[in-house]
Amino acid sequence: MRFVLLFILLPLSFFGQDANDSLRSQRYFEDQFYLGLSYNFLLNHPEGSNQRNLSYGLQAGLIKDIPLNRSGTKSIGIGAGLALNSYYSNLVANLSNDEITYSINDNITRSKLETHLIEFPLEFRWRNSTIEEYKFWRIYTGIKAAYIVGARSKFVSDTTSDGFYNTDLSRFQYGLTLSFGYNTFNLNAYYALTDLFNGSATVNGEVLQYRPLRIGLIFYIL
């Protein structure tokens, strides 16, 4: 009887061991949807310019995961997404006779520049996850390229409100990114390496050289 039990259980134990070894060595992919919310800073203000109100950003997209090692703790992430960014300041854009001019005005109620972008993030990813563990620490760093598909300037005062599509922006944008956190909730930062405007826009004889810095939260969803 003992011989029969041994004959039955021994192959099962080898099968279980092989299954566990296969599971441990199997590659896995952290393909993820992401959603982000940020506060947008503008760096390199011209003289007299400052930010006002709540400048915010929204982003969403999908990142494809490409593992670099067997354990899956290192990978490359390539993605695509959409973003909306708003910047509030005392810089006022005016459109007259197809020409855009800029001035600094502290007496307005609100002045906003809003951009709509298609984004392409490229990340080097480190995490301490496994194929069976979905809650883990992560550090993702890389570069994000973007193309501005539309931009709108708007200002509101006590007596008037005006808005128009702004063509003075640099269409192609790129910058450095960093995400750090645990599980779904992560801190996220983006520092632009390109100016927001294309170099032709000036205020009081000074070229506008705004560079965005965005800091906020990003949520990764499997």
Rank of each mutant, 00 (worst) to 15 (best):
R2D: 13
R2G: 13
L5S: 12
F7M: 15
F7C: 15
L10G: 11
L10I: 09
P11G: 11
S13M: 12
S13P: 06
D18A: 15
N20P: 12
S25Y: 04
Q26V: 07
R27V: 12
F29L: 14
Q32L: 15
N40D: 06
F41W: 02
F41K: 04
L43H: 10
H45P: 01
G48D: 02
S49Y: 05
S49D: 06
S49W: 02
S49A: 11
N50E: 11
R52A: 08
N53D: 11
S55H: 00
Y56S: 06
G57V: 00
L62D: 02
I63D: 00
I63P: 03
D65Y: 06
S75F: 07
G79L: 02
G79P: 12
G79F: 01
L82H: 01
S86P: 04
S86G: 09
Y87T: 01
A93P: 03
N97D: 11
N97M: 05
D98I: 07
D98K: 10
T101F: 09
Y102K: 03
S103T: 09
S103N: 03
S103C: 00
I104C: 01
N105P: 01
I108Q: 02
I108Y: 05
S111Y: 00
K112L: 08
K112I: 08
L113T: 01
E114Q: 14
E123Q: 06
F124Y: 13
W126E: 06
W126R: 07
W126Y: 12
S129D: 12
T130C: 07
E133N: 15
Y134L: 15
K135M: 13
F136L: 08
Y140V: 00
Y140F: 12
I143L: 03
K144G: 00
Y147K: 08
G150T: 08
S153E: 07
K154F: 07
V156W: 02
S161I: 12
S161D: 13
D162F: 13
N166F: 08
L169C: 08
S170Y: 00
R171N: 14
R171E: 13
Q173E: 04
L176M: 11
L178W: 10
S179K: 11
F180P: 02
N183W: 09
N183I: 05
T184C: 10
F185I: 15
A189P: 02
Y190H: 09
Y190I: 04
Y190E: 03
A192W: 01
A192I: 00
L196W: 00
F197R: 00
F197V: 00
F197W: 03
V203L: 01
E206I: 04
R211H: 01
G216P: 08
